[in-house]
């Protein structure tokens, strides 16, 4: 794993990607710090993280687009397959390298509150919880976008799909308010989720039967619940959207609410999508 990690990190820093990524993140943070804390004189540095988070929409897809797509395009993935390494350690090495590129500017922005504290009171607890949330949000998005990169050999396509996914996620919490909470709407929403799940199972395992069984069992269970007690499903649709919204949990933490559930949510997303990347790469071997 360390060999992959070192190689990846080196390649980030020999090319422009890491520098651009860090520069954009630092410049944006700098601008918001200046506006919020210096110009408007807010006493809350954590608002900066809340405002800056939108930049992830653009820079995370760019950071992650090449992770696997380029290997595939350059045919270097064959080297990874024939080296005596586990697929999980290859994925972990690549993931950690990308997270390191994120961690450096995050750490630098951690210096700002100390500078600000020279001229006023800073609530360090809230600031560092929001910094942690900011970092974890980025780490979770990197895992998601890295998985998307493992699905294609076209970097640009990987970047665009990643952007769309992050974009939807960014707005999903706002949109959830417009989604009908009736049990019928929830039932439809869950059906869509089940179909999507079955499609993913089918894609990753190439096993139609398994996908169909998953779909049928879940749909049957859903219908049973809907017919027996529809009230159980009330409000589920907006709730699902809310839960899927990584940014929503992030905002809760930024405004000072340390929520262990959100931290666990971010970490589970990281683990889940790292694993999905492993499966996606292994699957190519079994094509």
């Amino acid at each position: 794993m360390s060999a992959i990690f070192r190689k990846e990190l080196k390649s980030y820093f020999t090319g422009p990607i890491a520098y651009v990524f860090m520069a954009v993140l630092l410049v944006t943070t700098g601008i918001y710090t200046m506006i919020y804390n210096l110009s408007y004189q807010y006493a809350t540095y954590e608002y900066v993280y809340g405002a800056v988070s939108f930049i992830y929409l653009i820079i995370i897809p760019i950071l992650t687009m090449r992770i696997f797509a380029e290997e595939r395009k350059q045919k270097t993935e064959q080297l990874l397959y024939c080296l005596p390494l586990k697929m999980s350690s290859i994925v972990a090495g690549k993931y950690l390298a990308a997270v390191t590129v994120l961690a450096v500017p995050c750490a630098i922005t951690g210096i700002y509150p100390f500078i600000l504290s020279l001229y006023g009171n800073v609530n360090f607890k809230i600031v560092f919880v929001s910094l942690l949330a900011f970092f974890l949000l980025g780490a979770a998005l990197i895992a998601v976008c890295m998985f998307i990169s493992s699905l294609t050999e076209n970097q640009i396509l990987a970047a665009i799909i990643s952007f769309i996914v992050v974009f939807i996620n960014y707005f999903i919490a706002n949109l959830s308010g417009f989604v009908s909470g009736s049990s019928f709407a929830s039932c439809l929403c869950l059906m869509a989720v089940i179909v999507a799940l079955a499609l993913i199972v089918n894609y990753l395992t190439k096993n139609k039967l398994l996908a169909e069984i998953v779909a049928i069992v879940l749909l049957a269970a859903l219908l049973a619940v809907f017919l027996i007690d529809p009230s159980l499903l009330e409000g589920v649709a907006p709730e699902i959207l809310n839960r899927l919204a990584l940014f929503d949990g992030f905002y809760n933490m930024v405004y000072g609410l340390f929520d262990l559930g959100t931290v666990v949510m971010f970490l589970s997303v990281v683990v889940l999508f790292n694993h999905m990347s492993v499966v996606s790469l292994e699957k190519r071997r079994w094509a």
Binding site: S2, A3, I4, R6, K7, K10, S11, T14, G15, Q74, K75, T76, E77, Q78, L79, C82, L83, P84, L85
Partner: peptide, 30 residues
Amino acid sequence: KKCIGYLPEIPPLYTDMTPLEFLTFVGRAK
């Protein structure tokens, strides 16, 4: 895989590395 060294049809090389860097990476990975 530890017993095998493989050169695929298209040599899998990271073109933005030097041979020294590349071989050091492969050595570490091995």
